[in-house]
Design a binder for these strands. Structure first.
Lengths: 228, 228
DNA sequence: TTATAAATGTGTTAATATTACACAATTGTT
DNA sequence: AACAATTGTGTAATATTAACACATTTATAA
């Protein structure tokens, strides 16, 4: 038994991949070496296979294009305007992913014309990918204000000033150092490793790591890291 | 030109439709009169046509099944587990809609076996529709705490106690009358119509309406109607 | 070796928001 | 006219946020 064939449609998966280099929010883009829109920049993407679940498809595409797995990933939204893809009617399900640049090489992505852009200096993208990126940023802003997703963008051990710079990059603003520190520590999600950040030419900041158990059990609690 | 045909897939649209009867949160379900799963309850749904955008498809399906248009509607999430539909691999894009029960008849839906259930007394649904409903409720809770979407479930003119009952139904909790009133009024989103709610056997509450202009301009601002 | 600049860590106070509660007013019913 | 139910508004205690100051650490330059 099958449904009437009125509506079988190409299903794409696109993925907004974010990183953080310590100063700026970064986004991983790929220069297309195939038609249509060859030579232009786009998000990482591919087609969903008929044998895989959505999340598996998204993971496969991320793995194929960047070599990475075990990455924070979340479904964002679907895009299906009739003419969004000039080749053929295609609906795209967009995901966003957060990766820790310092500890993950993306050789694989680079070999495929992948490149990290400063978020604020990214080129214009194909199709409706700019719309996807805008939505992804707004979702990250929304979520990072209330839930501890920011840590996904940092190395395993990080300092509070590094965390603050990340939040400042996400929200394009500056935060008060003292109030930020107090707020973050009050969540009790951080464990002081006792180590210091040696890459500093002034006072070396304390290195913290996530309390993994608390992180997982409280992920859906509300922390108000930043007031919206 | 076309893409290789590896992945053309049936695309369904399902819609969680919420209402409020003054006491309980309601959800509109439909008893299937076709296979598969004939006789069981499901969300309102249909297949996306190749000639329509996603949002247009969702609106069309809502209109076809309930006779309603101009309804608050938002894309929720997509579901694509391989075996979610026993007939054939189908990906469903789920929307949720909020409708004002008192002022909108759903004759059309009733004629198609549609029925309003108390949210807390709904039957088990087909496929992964229970998962969709759970996600929809959590999205409504999330959003209604921060943005003025609750008003979509109320008649044009409503009292503050009515609004409070709605919030209490959404969150399954009770709120302090005095604090709630103060918080709502502090948003300046409500205009006192000068009229009173005549359907009351005690003190008649003041009827308010939304300040439409402020509502639209501040929709994406944060109001913290309820603390999460 | 000492002074300096840059960055980190912590404390304090004022302003604001939230919570918890009490009393007066309205209206149909007894 | 008394009563019960519900609405409208005020106020004090508590908690949170925002604004700001000073002491400490460390590489570098004097």
């Amino acid at each position: 038994m099958q449904y009437p064939s009125e509506s079988r449609i190409m299903l794409a998966i696109d993925c907004c991949i974010f990183g953080f280099d310590g100063e700026n929010l970064k986004i991983l883009l790929i220069k297309r070496n195939f038609e249509p829109e060859m030579g232009k920049w786009s998000l990482m993407g591919g087609f969903l296979k008929s044998t895989e679940d959505l999340e598996d498809g998204a993971k496969r595409i991320l793995k194929d294009l960047t070599g990475l797995d075990n990455i924070y990933m979340e479904q964002l939204n679907s895009y299906g305007n009739i003419n969004r893809d000039p080749v053929e009617r295609t609906v795209s399900i967009c995901f966003f992913a957060l990766i820790n640049i310092q500890e993950h090489d993306i050789e694989e992505a680079k070999s495929k014309n992948g490149y990290w852009f400063d978020f604020n200096k990214k080129p214009e993208l194909i199709f409706d990918h700019d719309q996807m990126v805008e939505k992804a940023l707004s979702q990250i802003r929304y979520k990072a204000a209330l839930h501890p997703i920011g840590f996904e963008l940092l190395p395993e051990k990080f300092t509070i000033p590094q965390l603050q710079k990340l939040y400042e990059a996400i929200y394009g603003t500056t935060l008060d150092r003292r109030n930020f520190s107090r707020k973050i520590l009050s969540t009790k999600l951080l464990i002081d490793t006792g180590e210091k950040n040696e890459n500093s030419s002034t006072k070396k900041a304390a290195l913290f790591k996530l309390d993994q158990a608390k992180y997982e059990s409280q992920f859906n609690a509300f922390h108000y890291f930043v007031n919206l």
